[in-house]
Every structure is written in structure tokens, then in C-alpha cells.
């Protein structure tokens, strides 16, 4: 989709510029935009695909910025996709390019209250930063669910869930790293006399740094815990081993107590004694009960 809204923003010399929103554009829309903006189409396409490129480019007739916006997936807490958002300042236009609608752009870009270009960019970055925070928290909260399941887990599924959390936090961290780079590079382009703008920049930088610290700390925690998760799973399986070993000992006792009375040798009065069976079996049950009680007291016959 290609949408143009007139007079949405103020350029460096206070001229009004139009906003060209390119959302999942078709090949035709992309070439139309490239022609209007006098930018190579391949440049726009590479940006749309999120290929490795400079996140901030300043040329004579073009300023280009790129960062990743975390968009939460509907109904799946902690799941998100990182959408590459490119922002361009070209003569007469302010352009946004993404393969899906970025929800907050319509609220930030208002033709009735046009903002200065760098103020708008910093507001967009601040909004993106604010999106990272709840996304990172939702991902980190999954650790609690993993830990709840860990108590009974005998298989490594919990470790895989931990690894998945690790990967998602790393993706967020890389997105924040790119954003941090853009913010630090923008500082060189801001007009030094505009104190309000410098303050917004400083606020955004601090907020970004705090979010990145939190994601880093969550990731370090999960990295450290993953090994422990694997040990907890081992321990759960070892509990079963312990239980089974105790059970096998109990099952082995009848092999020698009744076995002693089953030998094909003269057994004295036992074969003709009326209560022989009851006496030996009773003894066996007593021995079994005693050993089972000892095992239970020692915790060898408990599963939890």
C-alpha cells in the first residue's frame, strides 16, 4: 500500500513535507516510490527485506534511518516479530517503509500539528523503545512458567523452552543495539542550538539504555539458569532411578527368603509343617515392610 498525506511534517527550513507511507508495497508501488523519491529501487527493496546495511545514511538529498520494531503476535504472549522500519527524508517527502502497518505512526504524524523532522524521528524511536520494554518483559515472564513446569519435568522440553526464550531475548537485544547505534549517530546531526530537541534525544538515549540493560540482564539470567534447568531435569530423572533401584531391591528379597525354602534338598520338618507357608511368607512380608520403611524414611521410596 502506498499512502501520501500532505503537510505532515516540518523540514529543517520549516517547509511542510508530505508523508509517504509504504506498507508492504507491491513491486509497482515500490518502483513508483523510487521514481518519485529519486532513490534506487534496489535500495528500497533491500531495506524492506532487512538485509545488512547501514542503519543511518546521510547524503546530500537523502537521510535514511532503519531500525527493527517489535510487533507482538495476536493472542500469543511473549511471541513477536521484528519488523524492519525504514524512515527517509527525501526532497518534499518524509517516507516510512515497512512490510506491515506500524500502529503508532498514525498517532505521531498529525497534519494538524506537524512536528519538526528530528523531533518526529526521536518520538518514533521513543515509541519503538517503549514497545521493546513490554515485549521483553512478556518474554522474560515465560521463565516463571518454565520454572513451574521444571518441578516435574523429566525431559529436556523445558530446556528447549529456555533456549527459545534465550533466542527471542537475543533478537530483542540485537534490535535494541541497532536502535542505540541510530540514536548515537543522530546526536551528530541534531542542531546544537535546539535545546528541547537535545533534551528529547537525551531522554530517549537514557530510556533505550535502561531497556537494553534490562534485556541484557534477563538474558544473562536465562543463560546462567539454562544449565541449572538441565540439572533439575537430570535430578528429576535420577529420583526415578533411585525409586526404581529401591523397588528392585525389594523385589529381589523374595528370591532368597522363599528361595531358601524352595531348595531341592532335605528341608527338615518344614515341608510337612502345617503353618510353614504362612510362617515363611509372613517373615518375608515383615522383612519387606521393614526394609520398605527404612527406604521410605531415607527418602529412597519417594517420588517428590
Amino acid at each position: 500500500m502506498l499512502r501520501i498525506t500532505r503537510d505532515c511534517l516540518l523540514s529543517g527550513n520549516a517547509n511542510r513535507r508530505s508523508w509517504m507511507a509504504l506498507v508492504n508495497p507491491t513491486a509497482l508501488e515500490l518502483s513508483q516510490a523510487a521514481m518519485t523519491l529519486d532513490i534506487p529501487e534496489s535500495f528500497l527493496r533491500k531495506r524492506l527485506e532487512g538485509e545488512a546495511s547501514r542503519p543511518l545514511i546521510k547524503e546530500e538529498r537523502l537521510i535514511s534511518l532503519q531500525f527493527q520494531v517489535p510487533i507482538p503476535e495476536d493472542g500469543r504472549i511473549g511471541q513477536f516479530s521484528l519488523v524492519p522500519l525504514s524512515v527517509y527524508f527525501a526532497p518534499g517527502y518524509f517516507v516510512t517503509l515497512a512490510d506491515q502497518e506500524i500502529p503508532f505512526l498514525n498517532q505521531l504524524i498529525d497534519p494538524d500539528k506537524p512536528r519538526k523532522r528530528w523531533e518526529l524521528v526521536l518520538r518514533i524511536i521513543a515509541e519503538v523503545t517503549r514497545l521493546y520494554l513490554p515485549t521483553a518483559r512478556a518474554v522474560a515472564r515465560e521463565m516463571a512458567m518454565v520454572e513451574r513446569d521444571l518441578r516435574q519435568a523429566q525431559r529436556h522440553d523445558v530446556v528447549y523452552r529456555g533456549l527459545d526464550i534465550h533466542d527471542r531475548l537475543l533478537a530483542l537485544d540485537l534490535g535494541l543495539l541497532q536502535l542505540e547505534y541510530v540514536v548515537s549517530e543522530i546526536a551528530l546531526l541534531l542542531p546544537k542550538e535546539d535545546l528541547d530537541l537535545l533534551e528529547i534525544h537525551e531522554d530517549t538515549r537514557i530510556e533505550l539504555s535502561q531497556v537494553r540493560d534490562q534485556v541484557d540482564s534477563d538474558q544473562e539470567t536465562i543463560n546462567e539458569l539454562l544449565e541449572s534447568y538441565a540439572y533439575v531435569v537430570h535430578n528429576n530423572v535420577n529420583h526415578l532411578f533411585k525409586f526404581m533401584a529401591a523397588l528392585i531391591i525389594l523385589v529381589t528379597i523374595p528370591l532368597f527368603i522363599p528361595g531358601a525354602a524352595a531348595m531341592n534338598v532335605p528341608l527338615g520338618p518344614l515341608p510337612h509343617w502345617r503353618y510353614g507357608f504362612v510362617a515363611v511368607t509372613g517373615g518375608l512380608i515383615l522383612v519387606e515392610a521393614l526394609i520398605a520403611w527404612i527406604f521410605y524414611r531415607k527418602g529412597w521410596l519417594r517420588l517428590d
Partner: peptide, 25 residues
């Protein structure tokens, strides 16, 4: 773990039947 549980399962019939091997009444 699974092999151990099979071991226990195979031993159980032997353990239960053992009293009936005795040379008693």
C-alpha cells in the same frame, strides 16, 4: 530410566510367584 522400569517389571512376577516355589504345604 525406561530400561530400569522394564527390569523391575520383569522381576516382579518372579518375586510374586516365589512363595509358591516353597517346599511347604
Amino acid at each position: 530410566k525406561v530400561m530400569t522400569v522394564w527390569l523391575a517389571l520383569l522381576m516382579m512376577p518372579i518375586a510374586f510367584i516365589m512363595p509358591f516355589h516353597m517346599m511347604t504345604i
